[in-house]
Amino acid sequence: MMMKQSLRDIKREATASALAEAAFALARERGLGGFVVEDVVQRAGYSRRTFANHYACKEEAVAMAALTFGDVDEAEVLNIPPSTAPLDALYRWMRMQFTAGLLWKMRELMSLAKEHPTLEPYMLSVLHRLQTGAQEALSELFKDRYPEGYYHILIGAVFGAVVPILDGSLPVSLPGHAAAEASEATPFDQYLDTVFGYLRHGF
């Protein structure tokens, strides 16, 4: 059962978010090799010791900026009819979690990771956390009505379809794209509907 966060946990998350946002902003401005941890803590207004309490290195902080938009409200996911199919619940979770802000930030981070391979392990960690969030939401909603492996298959298939649009492998336009830039690309919402359509009806 989900527990309400304490004030201490909320403050800790706010600090981690501020440090991650500062690191991400510096990475965008200067490139990953153009700043050090000291620059991050100065911009965020915290000490180096505080940074060390949250992150092992600047790469981890940069990657974790993808999660500072706030996790999806699991309570909202859970507030759906119990007869809802797991695939429909996952669709709802994806639409709430993958906001325009998160998608754009993930794409920028993927681009940075191509230039700086030291960032890649931390990007994989971020993706894993997002997948774990989906897993926990479905498990909480459906309890043991379905085999545990069933959720892993669904979530793995959906995330496997999302990664290529984040790394630029597929021509899918993210929300907020100018019409001229997106004219040859499939809109993200349409692409997501196509993915779930395949999962519902087959290929």
Rank of each mutant, 00 (worst) to 15 (best):
W104G: 14
S125H: 11
E148S: 10
E136R: 14
Y122E: 11
Q131E: 14
A134V: 01
E120V: 09
E120S: 11
E140I: 05
T118K: 09
L127K: 02
A134P: 01
E148F: 08
L127G: 12
L127A: 13
Y146T: 03
L141Y: 10
D144C: 00
L112I: 09
S111H: 13
K105T: 15
H116Q: 09
E115R: 15
S111W: 08
L138H: 02
S111V: 06
S139K: 10
K143R: 12
Q131P: 01
L138A: 02
M106D: 06
E140W: 04
L127S: 10
W104D: 05
E148D: 10
L109M: 14
P147H: 03
A113N: 05
K143N: 02
H116F: 10
L130K: 04
L119F: 04
A134C: 07
E148Y: 07
P117N: 01
T132G: 02
K105H: 10
Y122I: 04
W104A: 04
E115P: 00
M110G: 04
A134H: 00
D144F: 02
P121H: 06
P121S: 06
G133F: 00
L109R: 08
T118W: 00
R107D: 05
V126P: 08
Y122S: 09
E120D: 07
L109P: 06
P121K: 05
W104N: 12
E136M: 08
S125K: 14
L124A: 14
H116L: 00
R129M: 12
A113S: 15
M123E: 06
S125C: 06
E115M: 08
T118D: 12
Q131L: 02
K105P: 06
L138F: 01
E115W: 00
H116D: 10
K105R: 15
S125E: 15
E140K: 10
M123A: 02
E136V: 11
